[in-house]
């Protein structure tokens, strides 16, 4: 029982990830009025769990390469990340848990005087490629999806049903990919420190994410999609599919990436196809600010904790 309390920060992290990142799955759908909020969170919670349990272990190895951790360091890394995520969720900014956890780990490494920036390069490269991947996916998938859904299906009733099923399907895939890719951010450090086995880590991580989705995701859900580009049903569907695909691809590579960046890339891609002028760059810059603030704040929190800890 003595060490189990150390899991609390990870579970808090998972909860805040669920609260913040679920907006990236159904935010476009809920804000565009395609699906009700309650339906969205129910589906997200189930498929996040499935993704975490089935493929969540694939991204665990990347965090191992950044640092070795004691139990306390694992606890602090997650606590710093969770607090950063909660703060940014409160500000309704879609923040990146991947960047938060990496920022915290680097903060701890800097406290020890041994930051290894080379290990970061693969991770940061994937971060940069994530929004680009989102844009490219949207652009590539636009025509084939349009042929399949819009041009072939003419009648109002059939098209309505197809969009509804499409949103559910892409949202489910998005939630699955989110669980598979991001659960490593939640409980991966416990596997690194040896506190949890990979199987237990993904199960607990998935559960905490699902709880966050169910209890605190409404506020951020309205920011994504509605604030950047006003979306019709087809565009919302395309953006989410792009995001889900990008996340799933990086899961296979083994790097946890930002679902926020992926969905923004997907939405921007849609905006570029339709009309570049409809993209709201002011909100886009607000979101980028969140991406920059996240690892810095998280790193400072983690570093600061150990500075204070060493004094007392």
């Amino acid at each position: 029982m003595a060490k189990e309390w150390l899991l609390s920060s990870g579970l808090l992290m998972g909860w805040s990830l669920g609260a913040n990142d679920s907006a990236n799955i159904f935010g476009t759908g809920v804000a565009s009025g395609l699906i009700r909020y309650r339906t969205a969170i129910f589906i997200t919670a189930i498929f996040v769990m499935l993704g975490a349990v089935i493929e969540g272990d694939k991204c665990l190895s990347s965090l191992k390469s950044l640092s070795t951790l004691s139990y306390l360091e694992a606890f602090v890394a997650l606590l710093a990340s969770a607090l950063t995520m909660i703060f940014l969720t409160f500000l309704a900014l879609p923040a990146s848990t991947s960047q938060a956890i990496v920022g915290a780990l680097m903060g701890i490494a800097m406290y020890h005087g041994s930051p290894d920036f080379s290990a970061l390069s693969k991770i940061v490269t994937c971060w940069v490629l994530t929004p680009i991947g989102g844009v490219l996916c949207s652009v590539i998938l636009y025509k084939p999806l349009r042929l399949l859904l819009v041009d072939r299906v003419k009648s109002l009733v059939a098209r309505n049903r197809l969009f509804f099923i499409g949103i559910l399907a892409t949202g489910s895939y998005g939630a699955y990919s989110l669980g598979a890719n991001n659960v490593a951010n939640v409980t991966g450090v416990y596997v690194v420190s040896g506190l949890l086995s990979p199987k237990l880590a993904v199960a607990l991580g998935g559960l905490s994410i699902a709880l966050g989705v169910l209890t605190y995701s409404r506020k951020t859900m309205m920011t994504v999609g509605k604030s950047i580009v006003p979306l019709d049903p087809f565009s919302a569907l395309l953006a989410v599919l792009s995001e889900a695909t990008v996340l799933h691809v990086f899961t296979q590579i083994g790097v946890p990436v930002s679902s926020s960046q992926a969905i923004v890339g997907g939405v921007i891609g849609v905006g570029i196809i339709r009309d570049f002028r409809t993209v709201n760059f002011r909100i886009f810059s607000k979101i980028i600010a969140g991406w920059v603030i996240t690892p810095i704040v998280s790193g400072i929190l983690a570093w600061g904790f150990f500075v204070v800890y060493s004094i007392f």
Binding site: G33, L34, I35, R36, N160, F164, D232, P233
Partner: peptide, 8 residues
């Protein structure tokens, strides 16, 4: 009936 999007 119909997506919430087109109901209004």
């Amino acid at each position: 009936a119909f997506l919430p999007y087109i109901r209004p």
